[in-house]
């Protein structure tokens, strides 16, 4: 009985401290645009959501997708086209982009989940490159120019997104919704099955799960969330270009997730923040950003393999009794 109550109090203590931490972070996020450049912050939020979506696959199912730019950039094109050409309201444009990404995810996932490890990565890379080529060729994406001058418009016809503050808060809301969705997925029974598949696929099958379905489900969810990030980015930056669909973008999201910490909820956010901050603040200097990021990456792989957030959490865990 005492063990029971002891466990309960330590659990509720953990819960209150998590809630407190969450409140502080939320307050900081709400206050951030008054101290930092809002466009930079929005960029971080979009990429953080993208990295979180990617991490849902690599961190919780153990699938390394090398073609996630397809969903990010594909959604950006769809959103940009819907808003600019069809005159859609921005939020529905973003949701259409996410839906489009989910449909792309069904196709890519259906083909890719049949293989594991490097083969899975290669299939997603190949399909991603095919998609990037399609984006270069079809007329509605405007080839090398991309879709430029996408109007931000009014959210639901009410909120004018042309001012940086409302745009920032809408982006923040979308990020938090996506982050919450991932948190729910990871901590659901479905998420537990995903973790079981990551750990030992055969064992999950022998318990009676048809693992392909779960993998495809996770893949589509990850694609949709990546699309949510991509669509938002198209509204924030008011353009969608080939940069977003090419393999370098797929590589960048892998880098962000690795730096931040694979398989932790907060890691990809940290990684995205770091990479975007470096790109942003070193853009004006003569120092080549990619070299610095490369150096950081090597240090990260050599010294803290769990990533920044992963390493910090491990440290806290070791400090705490039990």
């Amino acid at each position: 009985m005492t063990v029971e109550t002891g466990l309960l109090t330590s659990q509720s203590k953990l819960r209150t401290s998590t809630a407190l931490l969450g409140a502080i972070v939320l307050a900081l996020l709400l206050a951030a645009p008054f101290f930092l450049y809002p466009i930079f912050l929005m960029s971080v939020l979009c990429f953080a959501l993208f990295a979180c979506a990617f991490n849902l696959l690599i961190g919780y199912v153990g699938l390394l997708s090398f073609g996630h730019a397809t969903f990010f950039g594909g959604a950006a094109y769809i959103t940009a086209h819907a808003v600019k050409v069809w005159g859609w309201e921005p939020l529905s444009g973003i949701l259409l982009g996410a839906t489009g990404a989910a449909i792309l995810g069904v196709f890519v996932g259906f083909l890719a989940i049949r293989r594991q490890g490097i083969y899975f990565a290669m299939i997603t890379l190949a399909l991603g490159q095919m998609f990037a080529f399609i984006c270069l060729q079809v007329p509605f994406t405007h080839g090398e120019d991309g879709i430029q001058g996408v109007p931000r418009g009014h959210l639901l016809g009410l909120l004018d997104l042309n001012h940086p503050l409302p745009m920032y808060y809408v982006t923040l809301a979308i990020f938090l919704a996506g982050f919450f969705a991932i948190w729910r997925i990871v901590n659901s029974p479905f998420g537990n099955i995903l973790k079981a598949i990551r750990e030992n696929e055969k064992r999950a099958v022998s318990l009676g799960y048809r693992v392909d379905r779960y993998k495809l489900g996770a893949f589509v969810m990850s694609a949709a969330l990546a699309g949510l990030a991509g669509g938002t980015k198209a509204i924030v930056f008011q353009f969608a270009t080939l940069t977003d669909v090419q393999w370098q973008m797929s590589g960048e999201v892998i880098l962000m997730t690795l730096l931040g910490g694979i398989g932790t909820l907060i890691g990809p956010v940290v990684g995205a923040g770091l990479v975007i901050a470096l790109q942003n603040y070193l853009a004006a200097s003569d120092f080549p950003v990619t070299v610095l990021i490369g150096i950081i990456f090597v240090i990260c792989v050599l010294l803290f393999r769990r990533g920044i957030a992963g390493e910090v959490m491990e440290l806290l865990k070791r400090k705490a009794p039990q």
Partner: peptide, 13 residues
């Protein structure tokens, strides 16, 4: 499954 706790393991199948 090492990444799940006792109850989660129990409820998994």
């Amino acid at each position: 499954f090492a990444s799940l706790n006792v109850e989660e393991n129990l409820m998994l199948p």
